[in-house]
Computed example of a mutant assay.
Amino acid sequence: MSDARADQRRVLVVSLGGTIAMTAAADGGVAPALTAGELLAAVPGLAETGIAVESVDFRRLPGASLGFEDLTAVAELLRKRMAVGLDGVVVVQGTDTIEETAYLLDLHHAGSRPVVVTGAMRNPTMAGADGPANLLAAVRTAASSAACDLGCLVVLADEVHAARRVRKTHSTAGSTFHSPNGGPLGYLVEGQPRFLSCLPYRVVVPAPVGDHPFRVPLVTVTFGDDGLLVDALGERVDGAVIAGFGAGHVPASLVPALGDLAGRVPVVLASRTGAGSVLTATYGFPGSERDLLGRGLIAAGFLDAYKARILLRTLLAAGADRTMIEAAFAVEGGYAPPDRWPWAGSGNASKGR
């Protein structure tokens, strides 16, 4: 804000829409309508924090309608605004896609100051709407020096999660966001973020090269799967993520098609379970992780299938070749140290606690 004191913490709130910004629609239900300013005006106690808050209305969309172009534009906005003295940024959006968009922002955020993503599970027309509390917690976290060097964070229900780990686990519950592999990094206690752990490193992917609309589908393998979806990919994709059973398994009948696809484009093998790592050397039957990796698929490690798709699509957009993609997944999947990250100087050790 123009009248902010020299020592006052400054936070920018960027609104993309979502449930948190929805009001009653003429045809029934609710739809995004509120501005960032209106969202901030509804937050009790925000003025008493002493934080100078600016706002930008960037999009007014439900989370399901956001795309890569929207979030790439947000990442560019954040780069520009972070360069002029902000202490942190809050991105407000629909919770449907937060687990994906937050990771995309994390991969493009090279700075030390916090980027915090938040939203709401109960819209403003409902009793007990959680948007104001989540927004206040997000602003406090973005303004906190304790949140520096942690990359992009997701803050809802007074929990702070790493973008790389967080998942939406329930369709309607206010406590929907969890980090199955490691738990939350911290909590809001008496209005202040308190961190109990941190990720050991951060990585950054360069901005997209050109505007090619890379197609990277996610195929979830199911019981009795006859391979129809894998066969349908054909020559129409730039890469793919396969969410296999358990530790990375598929029916034997799918193996030839997956091997052929991996010979044409990068194919990442993830687990459909949502927690735990894809294995690399335990099972040896046709369709096992050893079999598939031997045919050229790339292990996702601890990245769930949704994160793996975001990473693969982001790597392709940055011009990464297969060797770079394999190295990047080895690091982010937990198989290799951060110094193996393919872009020198962008695998950063996070500060310890």
Score class of each variant (00 low, 15 high):
residue 8 Q to L: 07
residue 120 A to L: 03
residue 158 D to A: 14
residue 155 V to E: 06
residue 66 L to A: 02
residue 94 G to L: 03
residue 70 D to Q: 06
residue 249 H to W: 09
residue 73 A to R: 12
residue 353 R to W: 13
residue 185 L to Q: 07
residue 84 V to F: 14
residue 316 L to T: 07
residue 69 E to I: 09
residue 321 D to W: 01
residue 112 S to G: 14
residue 233 L to Q: 08
residue 328 A to I: 10
residue 111 G to C: 05
residue 147 A to R: 01
residue 208 P to S: 09
residue 120 A to I: 03
residue 188 L to N: 02
residue 180 P to K: 00
residue 308 A to V: 00
residue 30 V to E: 04
residue 252 A to C: 07
residue 25 A to C: 04
residue 144 S to G: 05
residue 73 A to M: 05
residue 210 G to E: 01
residue 307 K to D: 01
residue 300 A to E: 06
residue 32 P to N: 07
residue 48 E to S: 15
residue 235 E to H: 13
residue 18 G to R: 03
residue 321 D to P: 00
residue 290 R to V: 13
residue 84 V to Y: 10
residue 239 G to K: 01
residue 299 A to T: 06
residue 176 T to W: 07
residue 231 D to F: 03
residue 41 A to G: 04
residue 45 G to I: 06
residue 54 E to F: 00
residue 139 V to T: 03
residue 274 G to H: 02
residue 162 A to P: 00
residue 18 G to C: 00
residue 226 D to N: 12
residue 56 V to W: 04
residue 90 V to S: 11
residue 265 V to K: 12
residue 91 V to Y: 04
residue 123 N to L: 00
residue 195 F to K: 08
residue 55 S to Q: 14
residue 107 L to D: 06
residue 10 R to E: 02
residue 256 P to Q: 10
residue 64 A to K: 13
residue 77 L to P: 07
residue 211 D to E: 15
residue 109 H to F: 11
residue 209 V to R: 15
residue 111 G to L: 13
residue 151 G to T: 03
residue 323 T to G: 14
residue 301 G to E: 03
residue 300 A to L: 04
residue 199 L to N: 13
residue 87 D to I: 06
residue 215 R to W: 05
residue 269 L to F: 03
residue 302 F to W: 15
residue 38 E to K: 01
residue 203 V to P: 06
